[in-house]
Nucleic acid binder design. Structure first.
Lengths: 348, 348
DNA sequence: CATAGGTGCTAATACGTATTAGCTCGACGA
DNA sequence: TCGTCGAGCTAATACGTATTAGCACCTATG
């Protein structure tokens, strides 16, 4: 690193081509409006100099002067390391990158956001949001206050996953958990299950609410549709509780918990799905080794990534507001953990 | 999207605090030089207004005016999609992100670079390199001409993987393939192998040269040390060739080719490593399903990612040039595909 | 020949920050 | 009384681009 050779600017190009800086800018942006005219010879001359020098406009200056940057920010709410949630986010990122590449945008991963109280903060004394034209928000739980702030500032963004209003509608691309869960409940009812239990993670996220809503809506004809919250660590006690109240099928929000319940059940000499059916409600958010083919559904994560970019570009250039909230269908996974309830048990 | 509310600027802060814009900037950057003095009361007043408004400096303007952005560009040479090389790059990216987070930098994935003749181009009519303070280059083969250009422009960058000089030394963080391959060759010699063959991919990359160099340097005491180039598709013919010239151990550059050779050998009724030892020279660059525990080495990809950020920051702020080329040791993997040659065969 | 209208370009300015030269004001020394 | 000096601030400018008002010139028209 000696003296950094001052980079070529439009002024340099202008001097070489014998025109003004403004003309260079006009040629560069291929402006052909009615009130902007450049003679073909002049245009060619400028273009030739540009080609010779290999000049490319400084994106920073361009952004400062005009409006857009063709940069899409990606804010990952949960700290990326060392948690395994990385693997959960990866498919979203793949989809985002794919679509960003297609529309010619660069991706800015906002990794510099500081962690306060265990979670990343968008807004802090040196936030860099404005480097990007808009931002994609990834994370199970997103701070409502920050969404309010984004709305108030009129900053273009889109959340991956449905979000409640926050001082205005929140643009999002989510998965239609309610429908997916409802379909699984209906499948269970068709197989004769009458006593269903929903096992939640106990977190206040929208994604949990939606699943539970789907469960409740579809389980109306069931004899009993209970709800409890449990984690993987309490699997044994949970299985006892479930059996005690005659539950024949559980709908488990957290994948790791489902895995734990299955082995706890087997440890008690129960068969799955013979004695207890287990339905999972989404992909693993942390890596859990298991060979069990659980019945459940798959979240269209790559597609959500792609569409979030699409929605964001819409928000940025201010097209119709109605399309800024999307719910994508989840693909049901047949699996082997949803069976037919034992009639003897069912008759108790 | 109604009228975008003009964002708060230093001028606004200045007006509110009853000072000049320059003062706001000085306070903001905590300038305490001898020739810049701000009275404590003034400083506090400005800071209070900044806190109240939640103001944060526009990183774009900041970059234009001064020098640095705290953005690290990441250029992925091979097109990311749909090739599976994605999985190969992922560990590098993890390391890069981890270190970038630690030093408070954001990452700019330069996904907008256009693909020409099957490979991404750094330099094109609208390249966005200058958005970042410097750039990390990822890819098996990197165009020497582009490296020349980077050097000429004095643009700070670092390559992941060793690179030959290109109009000057190229800063890099590479894996020490030569040593790793040499160690494997020595291990084979110790086990009694005398006829070794190196199977390359036939690509002109530095990573291939280094491996081959290590092979040649260590194989001097062998009876024969041949070299051929082959791909996974020609596995059967390759095995025939190898057996015909009495080879007892092959060093295979490409992981997929090694997998193919192993199954081709078994198809011929040969045992691995009984009849033929197979040593792989690096991690799979594309996903190849196999249960075989190949003997070989592991590339320290995450660590390379981390150190590439470290080197880049050094290049950017112009510290000692001697440390800008690093080779990291590879971890040897024992595996089960390097055996002892059959004495009968060896005596031919 | 004066006027109108069109063409091709440039000067000037804005974007929001960082930096630096230099201004004002008061205190202090001679 | 004047000069000096330091403290505390501001005016001015640069960074590189996009945009717009408007200038100079030409042609056609009456």
């Amino acid at each position: 690193m000696t003296a950094p050779p001052r980079r070529v600017t439009q002024r340099d190009i202008a001097r070489m081509a014998g025109v003004s800086q403004a003309t260079v800018s006009l040629v560069l942006n291929n402006r052909t409006d009615a009130d902007v005219r450049i003679a073909p010879e002049t245009r060619d001359r400028v273009l030739r100099v540009i080609t010779e020098t290999g000049y490319a406009a400084d994106p920073v200056a361009r952004r400062l002067a005009s409006r857009f940057n063709r940069i899409i920010g990606v804010f990952t709410y949960e700290p990326a390391f060392p948690s395994g949630s990385r693997d959960f986010f990866h498919p979203f990122l793949l989809g985002i990158e794919e679509y960003a590449e297609r529309v010619g945008c660069d991706l800015l991963l906002l990794t510099s956001a500081p962690v306060v109280d265990g979670r990343r903060r968008i807004f802090h004394h040196d936030n860099r949001l404005r480097l990007a034209d808009g931002c994609i928000l990834l994370g199970r739980e997103i701070d409502g206050a920050e969404l309010h702030r984004l709305n108030r500032d009129g900053y273009p963004y889109v959340a991956v996953g449905r979000r409640d209003d926050a001082g205005g509608p929140v643009p999002y691309v989510g998965a239609d958990y309610a429908s997916a869960v409802a379909q699984l409940v209906e499948a269970a009812l068709r197989r004769g299950h009458r006593r269903l239990t929903y096992v939640s993670m106990g977190a206040p996220a929208e994604s949990s609410e939606d699943r539970l809503r789907g469960f409740r809506a579809a389980a109306t004809t069931a004899e009993s549709a209970g709800q409890m919250s449990a984690s993987a660590g309490e699997a044994d006690a949970t299985v006892d509780t479930l059996l005690a109240d005659g539950t024949t099928v559980v709908f488990v929000e957290d994948f790791a918990t489902a895995v734990a319940l299955e082995s706890a059940a087997r440890r008690r000499g129960l068969s799955v799905p013979g004695d207890l059916s287990i339905v999972t409600l989404g992909d693993p958010t942390s890596p859990v080794p298991t060979d069990i083919a659980f019945t459940g559904f798959r979240i269209p994560r790559e597609e959500m990534g792609r569409q979030s970019v699409e929605v964001l570009t819409g928000v940025i250039d201010g097209s119709a507001a109605g399309l800024h909230q999307r719910l994508l269908a989840c693909e049901l996974v047949e699996g082997r953990t949803l069976g037919t309830p034992d009639p003897a048990v069912d008759q108790r």
